[in-house]
Design a protein around this nucleic acid. Sequence first.
DNA 1: TATTCGCGGGG
DNA 2: GTGTACGCGAATA
Length: 888
Amino acid sequence: MQKLIGQLLDVDYMMVNNKPLLRIFCKQKDGKTICLLYNKYLPYFYLVSPEENYEDIKKNILKVYPNLKFEILEKFLPIGYNKKVKALKIIGNDPSKIPEIRGLAEKFGTCYEADILFKYRFMADMQLRGMEWIEADGKPAKTNTVNCDCFEINSIKKIDIQENAPLKYLSLDIECITDATDRMPDPSKDPIIIISLCFYPEYKNKKQIILISKRSGIKNENIIENDSEEKMLEEFINIIKDYDPDIIIGYNINNFDMPYLIQRMETLNIPRMLGRANKAAFLKKLQQGYSTSIIGRVIVDPYEIIRRDPWLKFKRYDLNTVAKEMLNDTKIDIGGIREIKHLWENDINKLLEYAGKDAELALKLIIQKGLLDKFFELSKISGLLLQDIFGGQSQRHEFNILSEFVKENILMPCKPTLKRKSLSEDELKGAIVFEPEIGLHNNGNILVLDFTSLYPSLIRTYNICPTTLLLTDENVPFYESPIGVKFVKETVKEGVLPRILKKLMESRKAVRQQMKNTTDPELLRILDAKQLALKDMANSLYGYTGYSRSRLFVMSIANSITAYGRENIKFSKELVEKNFPVKVIYGDTDSIFVKTNITDLEASNELGNKISEFVSESLPGVLELKFEKIFKSFLILSKKRYAGWSFEKDGDKWKEKIVMKGIETVRRDWCELVGKTMKNILKIILKDGDIKKAAKIFRDVAKDLAEGKIPLEDLVVIKSITKSLDSYDGVQPHVELAKKMLERNPALENIVGERIGYVIIKGTALLSKRAEDPKYVKEHGLEIDSNYYIQNQLLPPIERIFEVCGVTTTELLEGSKQKSLIELIKKSSSKSESKNIEFLENFDSVVCRGCGWSHHRPTLNGKCYLCGGQLAFSFNGNISDKIKILEN
DNA sequence: TATTCGCGGGG
DNA sequence: GTGTACGCGAATA
């Protein structure tokens, strides 16, 4: 017997002699992988029915499944306080037979925990967690089913070790060739020609190896030539086995490289032995996309991580853009994807360079940017295995809660079988958003105060949990939510959710404290990832209670949380306004914006702290209203859309910046000019408070546009051709341009998948037909349609900003020295809204004379899209006489 | 205004 | 494998 210590990487099982044998893959401190084998654990679930029925039920089930075992245990139901029941534990042998047995059992009562994955069933019962350390007693075992040292173990338990074992990372990228011109390559026909691999740490002193499927006499020790695609794939499998990575990385690997590799191996009849056990890599087609599992390894897709990270906002998420933004590095330019075939035949070195760089970039993103740090921590905090942490948040909470329920003898419900849309009649009522005082506020600082993690704090304060829900009249102290739902007080029984949150929030506090006491950058990075993971988990638990497919979905609980939230924020608003010479001009969910009559930063800071202290003292439980920052000027357009010039104290210095919420400056369908101009204008309005100057900036841009002084690059809009050109139904500018370009240069041949950048040029044709290639525009000296750029690109996002500052669109455009501009707009017949420019100040909405519908802005043809009736201007509810303008 | 639809990344 | 996405803009009624 020996003591084994390792970090938990993966768990699976195999059937041996009709019993499951668990295989627990762990990483030792020195980086060596071991596999622990455990055969003393069987699958089971619970059935709840009146106790007197259990003997009959057993007999009935045994008739069909004679090998099952039973126990009757005392348990608590998950929903409702103190609901004791006798539950029938049904113990099976083969985990994969459980769904079938459940089907039968469901005839006799309600099943619990009948859809917990076997590996998680085991982990929850043993209180094990993904990426946490375990200690086991075992002796060496021999098996040919696993590719690392194995031990047969008798016991296993979690132990506390902070550090992480060193992991091995392999990044890969494949290249294919196809004859098809209008689709992606097809693994049943089109070969893989290159597999490029990048290692971290190095493999046999190499950072990189590139495999190719033919011999062309390249002399390079990092290139391995093969006689055929089959041989190349076999070599690939050998390298995986030999290097034995823990993490496999690739850009969009989940939805391209992995599914392609696996399907290709299937097509060519190559055993897909990529994992640490004798089990083929497993590919599953989902509704949309794929999921691949490889025993003992984790597949990591930087594309998915980056796209889902709210802090990483880019215009596009292709590897080139992301690498440029995050690494200041780029892909190798081979002049379009259809060049691959040409390079494969004529310039293989260039192609190898290209493939090599792609794998390298994907690896760099993960390693240099520490993208996995947070996920290691999330795995530890939620208990999920690392490979499952990239899915949704609901699974993270589910396992965490299950582990707690196991400790407290509470049954976990099965996932609700999702019926139709309306599971219940009442809906989730959301948070409160105060009606904002629209416009520019710059005559008195605005203080922003936030409830620190509002929903988690509410759950803790009022002991909100399915397990504390008071369903019957009992003589115990309770909290009653504003919608009349009762939860027993923590003095009676602390809820599971409040306890989980307490743990999450208190460890976050501790981690942040620890961060203040360290300067080691490596440690700081890990600690920051940890506190972020803790914050994520705490903040998303509320969402889980209101998620209709949650195992613990109770609408009245989710509604109680938001109701408490509304109550507390309203209470705070009134308290602040009653006790201080201020006015709350806006608030959303967990924040209030307090307008003061002072402009001094230090004085504002003092007042902010005073308000925070005063309100927090009056708030119940762990609720706290924190003073967050000061806005020297604040521009609010509508609910959830504002910009401000913020000041935050950092030590004894003030840090200032422009913050924006709900106001976008980057959008796929906008050219660069739009964002640039917007930022510029907002800066001037907020910092200088000079609206006239801002308006002048706008007019200058308009003027420069008309005079052709704006660089073409700032006017380009880029869109992709996603399918063959004739399969597009409507007319879209980039599609029309692609057609044109093809006509001019038939050698382009395949344009599908290409990104087309276009500008709109002057002319009388339909807008879409006037899309043109910027290069062509330069070469032929064509004139861009400045009117289009003003009306369709600049004006829509910017006019609202000026409008709330009291500048009408008329004024905005009139001051322009380019008098003809207005004329131009008036005459332009394609856009009726342009014709209204002159009269904008005379109406506040556009109403249909037929159905009375109030439109936000005039429609293109001047007719109501609901009933086809004529539109008319309306001011203060009165329909204007100037209908003629529309009809002209 | 509500609701559905389709797409992203990759070769 | 006792399972499986999501969020958003555009189009449509």
